[in-house]
Each structure stands twice: as C-alpha cells, then as structure tokens.
Nucleic acid binder design. Structure first.
Lengths: 139, 139
DNA sequence: TGAAACTGTATCAAAAGAGGTTACAAAAAC
DNA sequence: GTTTTTGTAACCTCTTTTGATACAGTTTCA
C-alpha cells in the first residue's frame, strides 16, 4: 500500500462536499463513497481544513462542507495542502563526498525537484473543483 | 525508504559514465560514488540499457558506458526508462460504484495523472545530460 | 442535565514497496 | 581454465501508507 493516494481521495472528498452544498457531510458517509475508513477521511479533512478549503464542525449534527465555492478551489491548492511526496526522492544515503560528482549532485537534484514541482503546480492550477465536477458529470 | 530515488541515482550514474567517455565503468566503482550496493546499480543500469541509454558488457574488463553523447540524452528519456511511480496514486480500493461520484472518479483521475506526467516529461525534456554536467561543474 | 452523535487524534496492526545483501550462472579476457 | 565482471533471483529489513480501535472533547436535543 505504500503509494500515496491522498490527492486522489482529496479530489473525491471535495467533489462530494461540493455536491452537498451547504449541508454538512459526515466523515462516515464520505468513507462509504470512497470505500475506506472514516478516520482516514477525517485525517485528510484535517489537512484540507488547515489549507482553508473546508470547514468542519464537531458534535452532533456536525460534519464538513466547503470553505469556498468550487470555482474558487484550484487543484493546485489541494496538492499543496497535502503531505504528498516529491516526484522523485533524493538518495537515501548521501552520495560519496570524496567524489567530485557526488559532491554537487544533491544540490542539482534538489533544484530540479523544485522545478518539476512548479510545473505540476502550474498544471494543476489550470483546474478548479468546478471543472472536475463538470467533467465527472458529463462522463 | 519507500520513496523512489531511482531517478536521482540514474542521473548520478549517467554523469559518471559521461565523465568516463569511452572507458567502461564497473558497477562496483559507481556504487562507491553513489554510496550504495553494486547490485542496486546493476539493476538500474539494466533499465537504462533497455532504454538504449547505456551499453554494458559482461565478463572481465566489462562495465558500462553511454550509448550516445551526453548532449543527446534528455532527462525525459531517463524518466521514462525507469519504473518510477506516478505523482499520486489512485485509490487503493476502488471507490464505491453505487455512488455516482465514485463511479466516474477513477477515469477522471487517471486522465489527470497522464496530463501531469506529460507536464513533467516536457519539463525534463528541457535538459540534457550535458546540461547537468555543466551545472555540476560550474557549482 | 444527560444521552446521543460527531470530530479530532493517538496508537497499533497490517500490507506493500524500496533498497540492501548474498549467491550464483553466464560471459568475456588473458 | 582461471579470473573478472555483469545479470538476476531470492530473501531480509526498513519505511511508509492505510486500516482499525479507542477515547476525549463538543454540540445538539429531548
């Protein structure tokens, strides 16, 4: 299971919230649609809350709803809200520093990583949650 | 360890090969610079060979060298040559198909994944191995 | 006021993946 | 034919992600 699917689940969760409008949705219900455990959903919602994408309320009649309109939620925000890993990892162990190549490799790769991450964010900034909903409904 | 560092190591390996020109380099030597096990390097070289980026020779006096000039090796080729995971994974378990949202989510996410992957490839196509070497040497 | 219904989190167990290691067959060189 | 080296299989361990249980704290409502 070691592949991070939080972004995928987040899109799913946000779509459900969008379709529910102002009505609060319980983590239990969302978990049913996503087919996972309510705690997994609550953990995720916690991240989305920190990024001001959703609001949750505790207690009876509690639940979550979007913090803003679907048209104002960019997928780039969702991506940034989550602790997704980078596209590629740097070496687990540091390269041999006695080797002139090894010595400068990490810095280069780190820069490349940032560069790629920026590309991804830009691509994701082309989509809002509303676009997602439209695509899914027309399918 | 569960984050894939093969791309990072591949760049490192290719840089070493580039600096060695026509001279064949042994997996043992490369492993020393990358600070890992020779078998890990050979596994990686095997992938790079399949993509026609390097050539290896078995036997005494064997080793590996680049299959083409550094200026003709695009980082996008390196990326494609490796079994790197996607930027984000789809849900581990399939979403609930009784839910209208869940039913169409997978297709959408899959398309988005391809879209992002294309962005990454385009970004990486802006760099060749020669660019990498120049950057590292000027550091 | 007290029971019921939720969220938020901590903690643990289970599953999967990545990388490290050993071992050995096959190939080439000398 | 001995030595050196790649190619690959097999196995172990570590890490990460997800699933699951438990429970404290909040809010609603009778």
């Amino acid at each position: 299971m070691a592949a991070n699917s939080q972004f995928a689940i987040a899109i799913h969760v946000l779509t459900i919230l969008a379709k529910s409008g102002d009505e609060r949705v319980k983590s239990d219900y969302i978990a049913g649609s996503v087919n996972t455990n309510p705690v997994v959903i609550r953990r995720l919602l916690s991240n989305l809350q920190d990024a001001n994408l959703v609001v949750s309320q505790v207690g009876a009649a509690g639940g979550s709803s979007l913090a803003k309109q679907p048209k104002d939620i960019y997928l780039s925000e969702v991506y940034k809200a989550l602790p997704c890993g980078e596209v590629f990892a740097l070496h687990a162990k540091e390269a041999n520093q006695d080797c002139p190549i090894g010595r400068n490799m990490a810095a280069f790769l780190c820069g490349l990583q940032k560069d790629i991450d920026k590309s991804i964010s830009e691509k994701l900034h082309q989509y809002t949650l509303r676009d997602v909903i439209e695509k899914i409904e027309s399918a």
